[in-house]
C-alpha cells in the first residue's frame, strides 16, 4: 500500500533538548497506525509538526505526495489532515452542534445535516443544544472527533483518544474508529492504553527519546525486546493475549470514574 502520510527525517529541539531526532513515520492509506512511547518520547511533538502547530528544525511532511512541511494548521486541515488533542480542545461556550459547524465549509444547510449525522454517529445527538463545556471528558473526546470529521479528512490524527475515558466510552470510541476506517478514513493514533492500540492498529511505531525504536505489526512490537525494555514493561510480557478481548474490555485501562452507556456518560 502507498503511504498517504509521510513524515520524513523530522528533527525538532527546544533549546538544547532534542524532542525529535530524525523521525520517519509512514501511514499507509486506509490503515490505522499507532504511535506509542513513554512520556516525553516526542509523540505529540511529531503530531504538532505534521499538523503545522510547530515548525520542524529539519525534515519534510507529505500528504499523498504533496509536501505540507511548515504549512499553517488551517492549511493542513484543509489539505485533509484532521487532529484531536491530548487535552481536548472544544469550544466550551458554543453548543455541541455549533462546535460541529466551526469546521464546516459547505452550504450552511449541508453542514448542519452533516453535523447532525456525525453527532448521531458519535452518540451525542441528544446533547446537540447543550453548551459543550457541560459535557463529560469522554464526551468531549467524542465531540472533538466529531467536529474534525465534518470536513471529511483523509487522515485523522488522534492524540490519546482513550486517555482518561471510562472503559465503556473507550469501546465506543474504538468502534467509531473501526467504522470510519472501514469507510476509508486513515488514522494515526497516539495512545498509552496498550489494549486499545494493539486491538485497533495494523502497524505500530515506537518512539523513545525522539527516535524510532521499532516499527511493525502489533505482534512484532509486542515481542520486541527493546520495546519491552523501554516502554511496554512486564504486563504484556506476562500476558501476551491481552488484546484478545479488544479495546474496552472490562479491565481496559484509563478509566476516569465516569459511568453510563456509551456517550451518555455524565
Amino acid at each position: 500500500m502507498t503511504a498517504l502520510l509521510r513524515a520524513d527525517g523530522i528533527r525538532k529541539a527546544y533549546g538544547g533538548v532534542q524532542a525529535l531526532g530524525g523521525v520517519t513515520v509512514e501511514v499507509a492509506e486506509g490503515t490505522v497506525a499507532g504511535l506509542i512511547g513513554p512520556n516525553g518520547s516526542g509523540k505529540t511533538t511529531l503530531f504538532n509538526v505534521i499538523t503545522g502547530y510547530e515548525r520542524p528544525d529539519a525534515g519534510r511532511v507529505f500528504l499523498g505526495g504533496t509536501e505540507i512541511t511548515n504549512a499553517r494548521p488551517g492549511t493542513v486541515f484543509a489539505a485533509g489532515i484532521g487532529r484531536t488533542f491530548q487535552l481536548t480542545r472544544i469550544f466550551a461556550r458554543l453548543t455541541v452542534e455549533e462546535n460541529m459547524l466551526v469546521a464546516g465549509r459547505r452550504k450552511r444547510g449541508h453542514d448542519r445535516r452533516r453535523a447532525r449525522e456525525l453527532l448521531e454517529f458519535v452518540g451525542l445527538e441528544r446533547h446537540a443544544g447543550l453548551p459543550a463545556g457541560s459535557l463529560s471528558y469522554g464526551q468531549r473526546k467524542l465531540l472533538e472527533l466529531g467536529y474534525v470529521l465534518v470536513a471529511d479528512p483523509a487522515v485523522v490524527l488522534l492524540d490519546e483518544p482513550a486517555g482518561g475515558v471510562n472503559p465503556t466510552l473507550v469501546t465506543h470510541i474504538a468502534d467509531r474508529i473501526r467504522q470510519l476506517n472501514a469507510n476509508g478514513t486513515t488514522f494515526l493514533i497516539v495512545e498509552h492504553n496498550m489494549e486499545f492500540v494493539m486491538g485497533l492498529c495494523s502497524t505500530i511505531t515506537v518512539l523513545a527519546s525522539g527516535e524510532v525504536t521499532a516499527s511493525g505489526p502489533p505482534d512484532v512490537i509486542r515481542s520486541d525486546r527493546r520495546v519491552l525494555d523501554a516502554y511496554l514493561g512486564a504486563d504484556l510480557e506476562e500476558d501476551p493475549d491481552t488484546d484478545a478481548d479488544g479495546p474496552g474490555a472490562p479491565d481496559g485501562g484509563g478509566g476516569d470514574g465516569e459511568t453510563g452507556d456509551a456517550a451518555d456518560g455524565s
Binding site: 488551517g74 469546521a103 470536513a151
Partner: peptide, 11 residues
C-alpha cells in the same frame, strides 16, 4: 473560546 484551535480548523 480558542483562537488557535479555530485557526487550526480553517477559520
Amino acid at each position: 473560546d480558542d483562537e488557535d484551535r479555530a485557526s487550526g480548523l480553517g477559520v
